[in-house]
Design a protein around this nucleic acid. Structure first.
Lengths: 300, 300
DNA sequence: GTTTATTGATGCACGAAATGCATCAAAGTT
DNA sequence: AACTTTGATGCATTTCGTGCATCAATAAAC
């Protein structure tokens, strides 16, 4: 391992960069001004370039100093977090696991995995967070969460994705809808049907997938109304304004004023995948994957 | 600024954690074994928990030590990079800017912005990378790139998105196609047309957007064939197997054996947005945005 | 224009802290 | 049972960082 220059004094530099005044900073660090002056000199010398321009009257960051400050302020925050993470582990908590989930995993997959996970690993702290599929990809890449339940498929070299379920889709209609008379519903039955869906902002990924399924069958997805929440969606359907399409895991949460029928078609399914960063080899993640994969129902 | 414990000795710990042997590591660091032993003791003491289990015969990382090693190996890599970045700045290079782009920005937007950027900021190194929209979101979040041209719209609190262009879509048909007889092409003309598109893996975002436009008009997007590259796409269209849909910026790259017509509809357009992390305030990014926004054609 | 106050840098003596050497106890190997 | 290798520890030595006093440069005050 190559030894990195100046590491000892980075904190000192950061403190100085904050108020750009040797005497004040020195006082704040309970240090003599001369000592501070020399620390910075030493840091600059070991780096090989200047971080600060100093006249006898004022101090300012050089371009390089600004760059160095931005980067290292961030890194020191990261170091602080790494200590806290390790301390949690040392204190018997086997660590922290941050799990993201979206609506389709919220009713079955996530809760039952969580139940078994808590039993198997009571000392791992779990932090749950509701994030939609698109946001999860970003949160995972950022390291804001460790693992996420999202709408699949998801394919990316930096991530591992494990398909947990593939559930059929259902239509939800008003109670007296003509479609209910049919013995079985297939996609072509939906041609020309007025369809009500959640709006793009909230349901982006799901709607894209639906669009894809429909166009795969050569059927226009005729969205006549959008709703921003599930209650409104249910109400609009019950009132006879159209039908909606729900994955199996959510139909239990529809009101009794609507009827549901499964769409019988191999492509009309919603897949849920568990995704984590390939580089994240923490035991918490591995343990969770182990548990979660046993919960997967209707797995591929 | 709170002072962070143990920072001086983290590198030493990392070196030791790599071969888990005090004597060998000490030698590698040109240090006495006793000194190394004490450094680690001191680090552990300042952290308040053990990092290593040591018997007189073998050394192993504790759980906390593993966690600490994983996190800090990463951080030290980051520190090394921060030095190099600052050094580049110090050497007169005004820094490094990593730009990602996708196909639709590759012909006009990105190259002309790049031209003007190099003239205005000759000392900023630019690294260009071809990444598709979905991958860019992840690369941005990871900090692998600074800024990206992607298919819009894109809305996320962590990012700033600037719409640069909104270009019309065109159909590309074989030379003798009946649609060419119409005075103008509107979306409803495409009902029932056999459409050939790039496959999902490569064209995911574009296809989703197309799906969305079509379903917005209540038209089925009837994809009869998929191709994995542009040449094949062009060939299949020319051979009369169907038509394809291209944004304006790419029609110049189609062969002479196909004809193009603009789709006349306000929603049938492709938007290109420039996206960067809101937290990334580096002057390179700001400078690039400044230049790129002046290039934007047909801006909103 | 002179004085005064404040800035960061520097010479020097001191002291804390890290190092190297020698040695020890523990544990596997022969 | 003798030997080797492991990491820990006591102690003398050296290194290195610190505080104090002071300096030169510069801006503000008079």
């Amino acid at each position: 391992m190559k030894t990195l220059p100046g590491l000892e004094n980075v904190q000192t530099f950061l403190a100085l960069a904050q108020d750009l005044n040797f005497r004040r900073t020195a006082e704040r660090l309970h240090l003599d001004q001369s000592a501070l002056s020399r620390r910075i000199q030493k840091l600059e010398q070991s780096l090989g370039f200047r971080l600060l321009d100093r006249t006898t009257r004022e101090v300012s960051l050089t371009q390089a100093g600004q760059q160095f400050y931005r980067d290292n302020a961030e890194l020191m925050r990261g170091y602080d977090e790494s200590i806290q993470a390790a301390r949690r582990v040392a204190e018997g908590k086997a660590g922290l696991l941050r799990v993201a989930y979206m609506a389709f995993a919220a009713t079955e997959l996530m809760p039952s995995a969580m139940l078994r996970f808590r039993q198997a690993h009571p000392y791992i702290d779990v932090r749950l967070e509701y994030i939609r599929t698109q946001g999860q990809k970003i949160a995972l890449a950022n390291g804001d969460v460790d693992i996420g339940y999202m709408i699949g498929p998801f394919d990316h070299p930096d991530f591992t994705a494990l398909q947990l379920s593939s559930e059929p889709l259902y239509i939800a209609t008003p109670r007296n809808h003509p479609l209910l008379l049919r013995p079985r519903i297939v996609p072509s039955d939906l041609v020309g049907q007025a369809i009500i869906l959640g709006n793009m902002r909230e349901w982006e990924e799901y709607r894209w997938r639906l669009n894809d399924m429909f166009s795969g069958e050569g059927i226009a997805l005729n969205v006549t109304l959008e709703a921003s929440n599930t209650l409104a969606l249910n109400g609009l359907v019950a009132a006879g304004l159209g039908i909606t399409i729900y994955p199996e895991s959510l139909i239990g949460f529809l009101g009794r004023n609507v009827e549901v029928r499964q769409i019988m078609h191999p492509a009309f399914r919603s897949r849920t995948v568990l995704v984590w960063k390939r580089s994240n080899r923490s035991p918490q993640v591995q343990a969770f994957v182990q548990v979660a994969k046993q919960i997967g129902v209707h797995a591929p």
